[in-house]
Write a protein that binds this DNA or RNA. Structure first.
Lengths: 346, 346
DNA sequence: CTGAAAGCGCTTACAG
DNA sequence: CTGAAAGCGCTTACAG
């Protein structure tokens, strides 16, 4: 048995009906009598026939494929979180009968790379796409939205004039930062530093803003010496500590990192300088990365449910593709403190 | 500017040529004068035109998409290795101008799941597919090979009668096990146990066979009490230790685990029983998982280059798709010992 | 060098 | 309830 080249004409002939009827059976038209349907179905199964998807799409059906675009400058392959995101989208799309074309964008500024992404949409390979890791209001994504494609963007918020083909999701970083600061304040910390994420991304900005707001609400001063740059990667946490040490200033008693990877890097840096966590300095992360519980010390962090976010994002995207509803979709997910061993009372 | 509905007829009209010529330009036919080409290209760019991929495929072009099928009973989302595999395939496919449709198979025995996989091929969504994690000679994959689809299978070997549309890859587990046993023997171990992987998979079988062979070559006895069942997952390593302890027999001085996840589980189990690694018992893994260097103790293991394997698999697959060469492709990759801290001299 | 035309395998008004 | 026919947007022999 070789690659079956069977098509609807053949099925029609074998079942003694017209191609129209075969198509009606495949597409579950109601006006096909059970008897005819069964007859056709039997032939379809017997000959292992599946309609050619290109022909279906060309004739007006959907591709039933969504694009998943991961934007990341280098850490894509090493991150367990990335894997969770991919798997989450694939499995939820699959549950809706959709397939996922995953694409990795190493450099969102490279015009060739951008052109390639646009091609995927314009070629009609996909019915819509989800972007993860993009800078806030990334221009090429904005263009795709303007073109009318159905686009889901993680870590983004709606503008004043939201388009119905844009779906957006974010975490309540404000709430997360408030919890982190409140917890540290409760432990007696007043000298709290922060290692920021990528400030071009919404979560980078909102986490920092949340931090300053929360500090204010707890009546604490933000010491500029303790506000350190970072980019959400482990290395940047390590670097931030190097920078802090080189300043030769007094150290904070606690540090909040923009995410757990940054926290890992920071702890590594602190250890190298002979500082113990949490004995000498407390560290709190953000995300509750899969590694955080296994880390030494186990990392206190703000848990965030990426799986749930992507699940909802995927569902909304597919609903939007299929029904093209005019309603505006914005997903906001709360986050919550997980206390482990990386902070101490002073 | 809304979703551009421009097509080749429109481009032809705007450029003052026929659709044939537009198509020739797009497909780089040599018989188009530079002047005509430039004229057409200009219009194409100006109007942001990309040919509809469904129409192209229907007219005989390739979909330029490969399927990536991950078979796994539960550990897909939690494994950093899985992510590396996915990313490796995507990036190498991308380098060849191909896209990747990733699909997760939780249960390879579920007929509905299998039907869904077959559909992906028969619908002509993909030009070929790569399977990772399949049982040896998984029937539904064998069928797809018989149907003539271009299929790459990881952790599999060629049969006596190899089909030209089958590409197969494996690690030299024999060599790996020899290195592991030789290293332990060199440290003075003679009482060596093993925790097996999934014996339905080729690597499960060959690792165990390699172990017994290597033991024989070092003049060591395989003690059946120390041959433990596992399935490549962390939990199975933990369980194996429970089982071993319940036997109430003498313990081996060293254990070789079918992979690093199993080793992690085993070490966790040993710790719970108050045994220290490597002080009380040595453990050696297989794979050099991304976590192994960071583990406590840092895991001595057999390194295996999955990235290289998938890169080559992806390249071969695409070459095979494009040229349909009759040559047989089998990839075998060697592996090598990485000494860290989980084994001690006795 | 280039255009007209057939054909890829479907779906879906249209007509009966 | 069902078939004949048009049409989706391309590619590619074919003819000139």
């Amino acid at each position: 048995m070789k690659k079956s080249e069977i098509n609807s004409t053949e099925i029609a002939r074998l079942a003694g009906v017209s191609r129209s009827t075969v198509s009606r059976v495949i597409n579950n038209y109601s006006n096909v009598p059970a008897e005819t349907r069964d007859k056709v179905l039997k032939v379809i199964q017997q000959y292992n026939y599946f309609p050619n998807v290109s022909a279906q799409v060309l004739a007006g059906k959907r591709a039933r494929t969504i694009g998943l675009f991961l934007i990341n400058q280098g850490s894509v392959s090493g991150d367990i979180l990335t894997n969770m995101l991919i798997v989450s989208v694939i499995e939820h799309a699959s549950a809706h009968g959709y397939y996922v074309l995953t694409h990795i964008i190493r450099n969102a500024k490279d015009t060739e790379v951008i052109q390639n992404v646009r091609e995927i949409f314009f070629q009609r390979r996909i019915d819509g796409g989800i972007f993860i890791g993009a800078s806030n209001r990334e221009p090429f994504i904005e263009e795709l939205v303007e073109e009318g494609f159905v686009i889901g963007i993680v870590d983004q918020e709606l503008s004043d004039h939201p388009e119905p083909n844009r779906i957006v999701s974010k975490f309540n970083n404000d709430s997360g930062m408030k919890q982190a600061v409140a917890y540290l304040a409760g432990l007696g910390h007043s000298q709290i530093g922060v290692i920021n994420g990528d400030m071009n991304r919404l979560s980078g900005m909102t986490k920092y803003e949340g931090f300053t707001t929360a500090m204010g609400m707890c009546g604490l001063q933000v010491n500029p010496d303790w506000v350190l740059d970072g980019d959400f990667n482990e290395t940047s946490g390590y670097q931030a500590i190097q920078t802090l040490m080189q300043k030769g200033v007094a150290l904070p008693s606690a540090i909040i990192a923009a995410n757990d990877s940054v926290a890992f890097g920071a702890i590594r840096g602190l250890k190298e300088h002979g500082l113990r966590v949490p004995d000498d300095i407390s560290v709190i992360g953000f995300d509750d990365h899969a590694m955080s519980a296994k880390h030494h010390p186990a990392l206190t962090t703000i848990r965030v449910d990426f799986g749930d976010m992507l699940k909802r994002m995927t569902s909304y995207l597919i609903t939007k593709i299929e029904q093209n509803t005019p309603d505006i979709k914005e997903i906001t997910i709360d986050c919550s403190l997980v206390v482990r061993d990386s902070c101490r009372r002073i």
